[in-house]
Design a protein around this nucleic acid. Structure first.
Lengths: 340, 340
DNA sequence: CTGTTAGCGCATTCAA
DNA sequence: TTGAATGCGCTAACAG
């Protein structure tokens, strides 16, 4: 029955103010100096009476700029991603952009779907936390020449601006910290390295750092999340081969840390007491699992904010790509890595 | 230098296919039966050659439907919100909508800003996890008659469809569970009730349920997050006045649960051992803080999904508002509420 | 200082 | 079966 009243348009305002659309448009676009006070007042009133808001849709079509930024996140369940997103969102507000947020749920097909979708909404730039992306899709993206920034992960053979963590430095910090606390047998746990550069870089830095200590032995294992049995076995086996009182684990990201803590519980082990533990990514519960988990905290908000700035700089001058940016993490020491 | 190539338009395609825009438009809109196979093939080829994608902006302007849904979340850092968002996002995909996500960071000013923004992008519907919103803004919203659904919280004096939890039932489940496990002194902890209906309902149900047990004493306190000292004092005082071995706490949401766990640690108390604990909202770490936290798990995904469906049904028939929907939670029993 | 005009990319009459 | 013309709401020449 009482259907929605149609939004007022610029013509409605013009009519109500007894003027033309141009003047209203001028009023809206800050060219108010060009308007006589009288007219300005009439327009002002008409706008408020009609509760008029200009349509971004029409504006975008006309100007060819949508002020829309597309964000593709691999796993929004991940706290890291959420924090980065907050940074991006804050930057959007500061720079007058709006965020179209898409969650690919770690599915390549969705990633594909969303890239198409965002592109059809004419986003001016894209921020991507990459999951899969195969050749074909990458070429489409490259071809589109849409301003684009990757977060955290690179994509192989894909020339694109990246914002993320100083992985080498971070892994080194964690490793040295454990070494300094007397741990002699270190196990670096990550999801399958595959071609994920962050995993690879962290592992490499781990190995390299371990090599600085002649008396320390460093190993690594690749385990999928959601394979608790396998993880448990891996831990057991590791402890069997080394003196448990000198063992410590480095988890390559927050999700892995969570899995490790669960697995240790399942094995009846307590980190910080029976075995050392430190992990990438600070989480809400880091302080309260067992004796507190030592973490390497990433400047997530900063990363997100910078990613948007980077995209914007590409939007402004579409010839030059801004430099990659990598930020330092902060070691947060807690009980899990205290000497046993 | 090598500036971005402009997107191909429908005219480009028409030209390339040697036809008019109308036919291309028909091709795009599933009226392919009306096209001769030959023409259809030419269009097909032109589209793929030019890598053409219709502009949603132009389409929206023309059709008066943007297929955009606005989502306003009070605190995206909150795991509950994120999960609900996942549900909404999944539903959007299923129903062919796109999500414009905004995080108000619990600031009323931002809420206001974003509602304007979303409205200017002509979203067809709004899903809101309310924070503040004052009279004035509410009236604007009501006046806009935009299809709208609230999540979790209601807004006072604001007639709007709500999707959320069966708060009464849920609080009852938690309370009865603790009572059944022999706890005699129950403390219900929430952020300031103010006019937040979920807090009020949970508290009321708690009181009502406690009243069913003659030998059980139920109290409550309202404490802001980020006031750990105050919370600590509150806990100490509660334990002083009751036999600690019969004490248990109910935290009114996930954030509060986190605070309580932290506070207990600070007091040197362990939940499940020195004091009972159960809380609303399941979180990633619920299983691994201390002996595991007993929680009332909300069907978050479901809530989000239903919220979108609800909005869509309003979009379709803008006269009738769909009914509110409240879902049951699931009690997840863990060590924190075992008999001491 | 102000109004008229012409599109932005598309879907939709209407006519052929 | 097809295409030309119109207009969605707005901005930006271009006149006055």
């Amino acid at each position: 029955m009482t259907s929605r009243p149609p939004r007022a348009t610029i013509s409605d305002v013009a009519k109500a103010a007894g003027t033309g659309k141009t003047s209203v448009s001028r009023y809206l676009n800050g060219e108010q100096q060009l308007l006589s006070p009288a007219l300005k007042a009439r327009i002002e009133q008409a706008i408020s009476e009609l509760n008029y808001r200009p349509s971004q849709m029409a504006r975008s079509l006309k100007r060819g700029r949508t002020r829309l930024i597309g964000l593709i996140i691999a796993d929004i369940t991940n706290a890291y991603s959420v924090e980065v997103m907050c940074g991006i969102e804050a930057a959007c507000r500061d720079y007058g952009f709006t965020l179209l947020m898409c969650n690919t749920n770690n599915e390549v097909a969705l990633e594909q779907y969303y890239i198409q979708l965002l592109s059809s909404y004419q986003v001016e730039g894209l921020i991507i936390n990459a999951v899969g992306m195969r050749e074909e899709e990458l070429n489409q993206l490259l071809q589109s020449r849409l301003p684009m920034t990757l977060i955290d992960r690179k994509i192989d053979n894909f020339e694109c601006n990246v914002i993320g963590l100083k992985n080498h430095e971070a892994a080194q910090q964690l490793t040295r910290h454990l070494a300094g606390n007397g741990f002699k047998s270190l196990l670096f746990l990550s999801e399958p390295i595959a071609s994920v550069n962050t995993r690879r870089e962290r592992l490499e830095a781990f190995r390299q750092t371990v090599a600085e200590y002649p008396d320390i032995c460093g190993e690594n294992a690749e385990i999928r999340l959601n394979q608790p049995e396998k993880l448990g076995e891996c831990l057991r086996e590791f402890l069997r081969r080394h003196s448990p009182e000198h063992c410590a684990i480095i988890a390559a990201n927050g999700s892995m840390t969570l899995e490790v803590v669960k697995a240790l519980r399942a094995e009846g082990l307590e980190c910080g007491k029976d075995i050392g533990l430190a992990g990438f990514d600070e989480m809400s519960w880091s302080a309260l699992a067992g004796p507190g988990i030592t973490t390497l905290k990433q400047p997530t908000h900063q990363i997100g904010y910078s990613a948007l700035q980077s995209v914007i700089s590409m939007i402004k001058q579409n010839d030059t790509a801004p430099a990659d940016q990598f930020f330092s993490g902060e070691l947060v020491v807690r009980g899990s890595s205290h000497p046993l």
